[in-house]
Design a protein around this nucleic acid. Structure first.
Lengths: 183, 183
DNA sequence: TGTCTCATGTAATCCGTTACATGATTGG
DNA sequence: CCAATCATGTAACGGATTACATGAGACA
C-alpha cells in the first residue's frame, strides 16, 4: 500500500457535482456554494485548474473549449469518482475560533462571551431556516432523483448539529449569567 | 475601518496557553493537543516561529534563551491577548470529508455509506468518553481556577456536538437500511 | 452605449503541515 | 552507555484564498 492519499478533495467535489449534471466552472462554483455550502467550499482558483487537469486526463469533456461550454463527466471520470469517494475520510485539523475565544474567556469577561454565544446561536437558527427552505424546495420538486436520500442525510446532519448548538448556547448563556458582570 | 484582521490565530492560542502557565514550546504543543485538542491544533512549525516573534515583540519572555526554559507572558502580552480575543471570530471555510462522501453516496452504495456513518458514530462515542475523563479529572483537582467555568463551556459544546452526531448516525443508519443493498 | 452578470483564467500570497537536522537530559 | 523523551528549530511543500486581468453576452 504505497502512496494512495495525495489527491485533493477538490477533485472529488468537482467530479461529484458534474456527475449530477454538466456545468461550467462558474456554475460549479455557484452550485457548490449553494448546495454543499454548509459543509463544503471551493474557490475559482481551485476549480479552474482542477477542471483543466481533469479534462487533460479525459475524466471530463468540454466540446467547445474556450467557449462558455459546460463540462461533462466521462465514463472514466465516473470510475475515478467512485475511487475517490472510497478514499479514507481526511478531516482537516480542527480550528474552531469560537471555542478558542471561549476557552480563554476569562480574559474577555462574561459579557463579551455572552455576545459570542448569542451570535453562534443566531447563526445556528439561521442555518435551520435554510435547511427548512431546502427541504420544502425538494418536496415541491416533482422529479425525485436517486441522489435524494443521500442529500437528505447531509441536511439532517446539519440540522442535528444546528439544534445541538442552540441547546448548548442556551445552557452556556445560563452558566454565564452566574458569573457576574466582570471576572 | 482599516486593516484589522491579518493576525494568525496561532498567536492567540500561544498567548492564551502561556497566560495559564509558563511553558516551553514543546510543552505548548503537548498541552494544546491534549487540552484544546477537540477544537484546536498547532504544529511545531507554527509554534516556534510564533514564539520567537512574540519574544521579539516583548509579549513573552524567556530568561535563558537557547536553554530549555519556559516562556512567560508579559503584561504587554496579556494586553495583546485581550485584543486578539476581541477580534471577530474567523471560521475556516467548511470542508467536511464525511459529508462530501455521503452527499455523493449514490456512487458509493448504501453499504459503504453505512460503514462511514458507523465510523463517525464510533468517533463521537470515543469523544464522549474523553470528555467524561476530562470532567472527572477536573473534579478531583482540588484547586479550582477562575478559568474553569470557561473551559466547561467548551467541553459542553463538544459533548452536545458528539451526542448530536450519535443521534444523527442512528437515524441515518435506519434510513440507509431502507435503500436495499445496492443502488 | 453602458452596465451587470456570466465566464475563464493567472499570480501573489498566506497559512499550515511534514519532514528533516540537531542536540540535551534522564533513567535503565 | 544506550535508548527514549524533551527540546528547538528550519526547509520544503501543498493547498487554498484573494486579487487581478480580461472578455463575452444580455438588456435597458
Amino acid at each position: 500500500m504505497g502512496s494512495m492519499a495525495r489527491t485533493s478533495q477538490t477533485e472529488t467535489a468537482v467530479l461529484g457535482a458534474l456527475a449530477v449534471m454538466p456545468m461550467t466552472g462558474y456554475a460549479l462554483r455557484e452550485s457548490i456554494r449553494d448546495v454543499l455550502g454548509h459543509f463544503w467550499s471551493e474557490s475559482f482558483g481551485q476549480i479552474y485548474p482542477t477542471l483543466s487537469r481533469l479534462e487533460h486526463e479525459g475524466l471530463v469533456e468540454r466540446p467547445d473549449s474556450h467557449r462558455a461550454t459546460p463540462s461533462t463527466i466521462t465514463a472514466a471520470g465516473l470510475a475515478r469518482l467512485r475511487e475517490l469517494l472510497s478514499t479514507p475520510v481526511q478531516d482537516a485539523p480542527p480550528r474552531n475560533g469560537l471555542m478558542l475565544r471561549l476557552f480563554f474567556g476569562r480574559h474577555l469577561g462574561p459579557d463579551t462571551c455572552r455576545r459570542l454565544v448569542l451570535d453562534a446561536r443566531d447563526g445556528a437558527e439561521r442555518q435551520l431556516a435554510e435547511f427548512a427552505a431546502i427541504r420544502s424546495e425538494m418536496a415541491t420538486d416533482t422529479e425525485t432523483s436517486a441522489d435524494q436520500p443521500y442529500w437528505l442525510l447531509t441536511i439532517s446532519a446539519g440540522e442535528h448539529a444546528a439544534r445541538a448548538t442552540i441547546v448548548w448556547a442556551d445552557e452556556a448563556l445560563a452558566a454565564l449569567e452566574h458569573l457576574g458582570p466582570a471576572a
